[in-house]
Amino acid sequence: MCRWLAYSGTPIRLEDLLYRPRYSLIDQSQHSREGVETTNGDGVGVGWYPVDAAGEPALFRAVGPAWSDVNLRELAHATSSPLFLAHIRASTGTPVQQSNCHPFRFQNWLWVHNGSIREFARLKRDLVLAVDPELYPSMAGSTDSEVMFHLAITYGLRDRPVAAVERMAGLIESVAHRHGVPDPLQMTVGTTDGDRIWTFRYSSEGRSRSLYFSTDMTALRALHPELDTLRRLSEETRLIVSEPLGEMEGAWQPVPESSYGIIQQGDDELGRFAPAGP
């Protein structure tokens, strides 16, 4: 499987989350505590929206392990962003190549995924045929994650993200049922249009991979008034992670099973996620 994080808030250097925390994403690439695999060394990527810039996000993806990528370290030290997604990959069977590394990008959208489609090779043809033909040329890799992304776009991700991902999940379960594949879908997903972040935690078997969100800044400052760094972050700052970046009491809350969340200006949202039939 994989590990990922999504950040929105006061612009910070990428290294502040990728490298500096005790259990940073780079540390998790070798020492994951809650993943299926301890090591996630089959690629790394980060997509970010530059400060004071509009349009497509920038993207860095590499096939080597995150812990030894000197280019990533240089980029993370020099780059600040108010919104970014980062991912470390553990392949579930598809090749280790750059086009299979996350995040995936389409126009102003980014997408990261941890999980898998069970027996994807058997289901892939039916799933790919459901992708909008106009989107097909933009699929460069061979992963189930990229197919899921393009199915979500096909079903209206750009207009109704939650409904689109519910239809995507429903299609996968329907196709799997026809092929006799039980409990086909395992996913935690992070996706963003550069303004809001949507996150999803769901599995067909009801035992989804780990996912957490940070406590709101007001509550976190009240819990830890001794931490000056928290004062520099805006009230809107939020973080979604596959597993906590540290052990600060009260900082992390688990995303409920079968749910979605929306990180946005003003009140965030948390709701029930249920696949929709095709």
Rank of each mutant, 00 (worst) to 15 (best):
M1G: 13
A6R: 02
S8H: 11
P11I: 04
R20F: 13
I26S: 04
H31M: 03
E34R: 10
E34K: 09
V36D: 08
G41Q: 12
G45H: 08
G47F: 01
D52P: 05
P57W: 01
W67N: 13
D69T: 03
V70E: 15
R73I: 06
A78W: 02
S80M: 15
S81V: 12
S81P: 13
L85H: 03
I88K: 03
T92G: 04
G93I: 09
T94P: 01
S99F: 06
Q107W: 06
N108K: 15
N114C: 11
I117K: 01
I117P: 00
R122C: 02
R122V: 09
R122H: 07
K124L: 05
P133C: 05
Y136M: 15
V147D: 00
I153G: 00
I153P: 01
R158D: 07
D159C: 12
V162R: 00
R167M: 06
L171P: 04
V175D: 00
V175N: 00
R178A: 00
Q186R: 08
M187Y: 02
T188P: 07
V189L: 14
D195V: 06
T199I: 12
F200H: 07
R201Y: 01
Y202R: 02
Y202L: 06
G206W: 05
S208I: 08
L211A: 14
F213E: 08
D216L: 04
M217L: 13
M217V: 04
L220P: 00
L220W: 09
A222G: 06
L223N: 05
R232M: 08
R232Y: 14
E243K: 09
P244G: 05
G246K: 03
E249N: 09
G250E: 07
A251F: 10
S259Q: 03
S259E: 07
D268V: 01
E269T: 08
F273E: 10
G277E: 15
P278Q: 13
